[in-house]
Simulated assay, not measured.
Amino acid sequence: MAQAGQPAEAIDALTHAREAFNQTGDIHGEAQAWNNLGAAQVELGQRAGAVGAVLRAVDLFEAAGDEHNAALGRESLVRIRQDPDTDDLV
Rank of each mutant, 00 (worst) to 15 (best):
R56T: 11
G73A: 03
N35I: 04
D12N: 14
V78G: 14
A40G: 02
E30P: 07
Q82C: 09
A17F: 11
V51K: 04
Q3T: 08
G38P: 01
N22T: 08
A13T: 10
E75L: 15
L37D: 00
R74M: 08
L14G: 00
Q82L: 11
A4M: 12
N36L: 10
D59W: 02
D88V: 10
N69Y: 12
N35M: 14
F21Q: 13
L60S: 02
G25I: 06
A17H: 05
A8Y: 03
R81D: 08
G25C: 15
E30I: 06
R47I: 03
V42P: 00
A71P: 10
I80A: 01
T86M: 12
A71H: 09
G38T: 04
A17D: 13
I27D: 07
T86R: 04
Q6R: 15
Q32P: 09
A63W: 11
A57K: 01
A40V: 00
F21R: 11
A63G: 11
V58I: 08
D66Y: 07
L55W: 08
R81C: 13
A8H: 08
G52Y: 02
V54L: 04
Q6A: 11
D83K: 00
D85N: 14
I11W: 00
V51N: 03
E67Q: 14
V51D: 05
D85T: 11
M1K: 07
Q6G: 07
G52V: 03
G29M: 05
N36R: 13
D26S: 12
N35F: 14
N36Q: 08
G29I: 04
A8Q: 10
E75C: 15
A53L: 03
G65W: 06
V90C: 15
L77Q: 04
G73P: 01
N35C: 13
A31Y: 03
L37I: 06
A48T: 10
V51W: 01
A64S: 12
I11G: 00
I11V: 11
L60E: 00
D59A: 07
L89V: 05
G52H: 15
L14H: 04
L44H: 04
A13C: 10
V54N: 02
Q41F: 01
D66R: 06
L77F: 05
A10D: 05
M1I: 11
R81E: 12
V90E: 08
E9R: 07
A71I: 12
A57V: 02
V51S: 04
N22C: 09
T15L: 05
A10Y: 01
A10C: 08
D59I: 06
Q6T: 13
D83G: 02
D88A: 07
A8C: 09
L77S: 13
G65N: 11
A57Y: 02
D12M: 15
H28P: 03
R56Y: 07
A63V: 10
D87W: 09
A33G: 14
A2V: 05
M1P: 14
D59R: 04
N36S: 12
I11P: 01
Q82N: 14
N35V: 12
A39F: 05
S76Y: 03
P7Y: 02
P7V: 06
T15Y: 03
G52N: 10
A40R: 01
A31W: 03
G29S: 05
V51T: 05
A53Q: 01
Q6N: 15
Q6D: 09
R79A: 12
L77D: 03
